[in-house]
């Protein structure tokens, strides 16, 4: 790791100020994406502004049709939260399936959303649950937030302070893990909302990152069951291809995971 200065912020405003004062700062949350990259010198920053002590980013609360989780809440806290389990059990189960126990003790919702790794789990939930990403200055619909691989609508220095998920009537998640990295090779989050709309979001597989699978949404809005997806497939031209799996293989996985997600309503299924 290259040399750096460490600063711990105690409020969102202080974090913004410390970020602005440095020439090439980065926020440090759980550090479970940023620090491995910095250790390998794939990333370098003169200042790391630690968001870990900002109390305002740590709450979990339900109000009306929304479940709001602070950007600084860890995956383990989401997985263990009675409020999350009560409102959106599949979201708690998704958080409990990220990485391993130690990663879940440190990694945060805000860090995962801001990083927008094309194989991360949370972005699929954010899209399918019509989430609103809350930052220090504004609110951004999840549909407008994830713009490209590792790219988001966040501006330089903007902080994800929380995410509000729309509480659905029912939802489920299924993913097939990469046997080495353990991130999903394809993960599908399905949700039927209280107004009858259906959302289906796919992570891990798309060559432009997380996306909504609109044909599946249409097919499921009449009949929210796996059989409604019979014969439906995604275009392999939209899929990633690498040593772990060809685009055709991933396209097939997406269809299979979508059906499995419908069989896991109220929970999450992680395969291997």
């Amino acid at each position: 790791m290259y040399s750096l200065s460490y600063r711990r912020a105690s409020s969102v405003e202080e974090a913004r100020r410390l970020f602005k004062e440095a020439s090439d700062a980065a926020y440090l949350a759980g550090g479970h994406t940023l620090l491995p990259a910095m250790k390998q010198r794939l990333a370098a920053h003169d200042v790391l502004v630690d968001l870990g002590a900002i109390a305002d980013m740590k709450g979990i609360g339900v109000s009306g049709d929304g479940l709001t989780i602070g950007g600084g809440v860890t995956h383990a806290e989401v997985a263990g939260s009675q409020e999350v389990k009560g409102a959106i059990p599949s979201l708690a189960a998704l958080a409990g399936s990220i990485g391993d126990a130690q990663v879940r003790h440190r990694g945060t919702l805000g860090g995962s959303i801001a990083n927008n790794d094309p194989a991360a789990d949370y972005p699929a939930a954010a899209l399918a649950l019509a989430a609103t990403i809350r930052t220090d200055g504004r609110e951004i619909a999840a549909d407008d937030f994830f713009t490209a691989l590792y790219e988001t609508a966040l501006e330089e220095g903007e902080i994800v302070t929380g995410v509000s998920f729309r509480i659905p009537e029912t939802a489920g998640y299924a993913k097939f893990r990469n046997p080495a990295s353990r991130y999903p090779m394809a993960g599908v989050f399905v949700a039927r909302h209280k107004d009858g709309t259906v959302r289906v979001a796919v992570t891990g597989a798309g060559n432009e990152g997380v996306f909504r699978w609109s044909e599946a949404e249409q097919a499921l809005s009449g009949n929210f069951a796996a059989e409604a997806l019979a014969g439906l497939s995604v275009d392999p031209d939209m899929m990633m291809g690498d040593i772990h799996g060809s685009p055709e293989y991933r396209a097939n996985l997406v269809a299979v995971m979508a059906r499995r997600a419908l069989g896991s309503l109220g929970s999450a299924e992680a395969i291997i």
């Binding site: 460490y6 711990r8 440090l28 550090g31 479970h32 620090l35 491995p36 250790k39 790391l48 630690d50 870990g52 383990a76 391993d100 126990a101 130690q102 990663v103 003790h105 440190r106």
Partner: peptide, 25 residues
């Protein structure tokens, strides 16, 4: 790569990978 867990310690009672944290944190 933060994967092996040989470095696990307890931080305020929770298991964490000490290779993936700054001492300052």
């Amino acid at each position: 790569t933060s994967q092996c867990g040989a470095c696990v310690v307890h931080l305020d009672g929770k298991a964490v990978k000490s290779c993936t944290m700054l001492a300052a944190q």
